[in-house]
Amino acid sequence: MSVQVSQQQVAAIKESIRKEVTQDYLKKYIETPYIDEDRILLLISSIANQTITEHEKEQSIVATMLIQIALDTHEKITNLDEALKNRQLTVLAGDYFSSLYYKLLSNMSNVQLINILAKAIQTVNEYKVLVYKMEATDIDGFIDNLKKTESIIATEFIQFFDGNSSFVSLSEEMLLLNRLIREKEKAISGKHSILFEALINFCLPNIELSFQKLKRDLKIELFKIANRYIEQSMQCIEKEIANLPTINSLLNQRIKSLIQRTNTTSIILEEG
């Protein structure tokens, strides 16, 4: 499939999602949900050779993306004393997006996919608790849990339609890599990062400071560990691509630009 066709498909699905999540009142109070194009592309690639109609493909992807958006919306709820109305509407927006996924799949009579995705939501929330409470034996375990929170919804969808194990692994790693880069970018820009909090917790257990308050040499030490996981993830991606008979050209392009992004964040770090 050409890059242009894939781009058009991603744009069309993004627009359908945007229409679904646009609710006049919510728009006034909460941020427009972020729609992850890479995730859409992974889902499109996994479903490309299926014999269902284009409409069914699109609706299945939109429904799955709505779940991810619902979960991401609820992830914005904190324990801080934020504006009450904002918090209230963030909770309700997540619930609303979640109900829309069920409605879409019910209208398609796809009870089996509802079941698969409901199970995935259960599992992802179990992993979210592990990540949030930092319940893991070591940092490897934490990274693995983080990978699950990022990828379970997408990989369950992919397995439902495709089942190619290399593509499932590729998707897991790509979504993890994306998250690791975002966490690193957060840390660089002085924002709170759960990854760097976990790195302190597991790798510097005697230190009780937040990442931003660490001395420069310790910060660099932690960045090196984070980079190792990023490097590992990139290697896995390359290995899985080699295992695939073909790969969507746009997806290939996206992966390259993601890898490019990891280089950029490294340069920023080295330059201080």
């Binding site: 609820h74 992830e75 709820i77 409901a118 929330n125």
Partner: peptide, 24 residues
């Protein structure tokens, strides 16, 4: 806390839908 309440609520809702999918 709030975050755990969000995860718990989402988990319970997903469990509800799992039960519903037993209805064909």
């Amino acid at each position: 806390d709030n975050r755990i309440a969000m995860y718990t609520g989402d988990y319970i809702l997903a469990t509800a839908l799992q039960y519903m999918t037993k209805i064909d």
